[in-house]
């Protein structure tokens, strides 16, 4: 009986630990789709650079591929960066503003 109780308790423990984990087949398939989408988007975005410079495009494609394979999975990291946290949202808003102004203002001087 004690053995049976132990077995039952271990099953209950396993069940409760599983129920805390939100991972389901839907989550996994969604995360894999997101991972592929991010990878493909990065590579295709890098390929668009060929309209500016073919050499730059090749270098960036290789860089993106190396960075991706050394940092995957990216989907989870990107999800955590895109939370509803005001700090993160403000950070990215300010960063984009800075990049836009810098690239457009100083970049156009050399065009």
């Amino acid at each position: 009986m004690a053995l049976y109780q132990k077995f039952l308790d271990s099953i209950k423990g396993l069940k409760s630990s599983l129920s805390k984990d939100p991972t389901t087949m839907d989550n996994v398939s969604g995360a894999i789709a997101a991972e592929f989408l991010i990878f493909v988007s990065l590579i295709l975005a890098a390929l668009v650079l060929r309209h500016v410079s073919v050499v730059a495009s090749i270098v960036v494609v290789l860089l993106v591929a190396v960075l991706f394979f050394t940092n995957m999975p990216l989907a989870g990291k990107i999800k955590s960066e895109q939370s509803d946290s005001l700090e993160k949202m403000t950070f990215y808003v300010v960063i984009v503003l800075g990049i836009l102004v810098a690239v457009i203002y100083w970049g156009l001087r050399y065009v």
Binding site: D26, G30, A31, A33, A34, L37, I38, A75, I78, K79
Partner: peptide, 8 residues
């Protein structure tokens, strides 16, 4: 779209 794919 990546975020939407992971959303519950």
């Amino acid at each position: 779209i990546a975020m939407s794919a992971m959303e519950v």
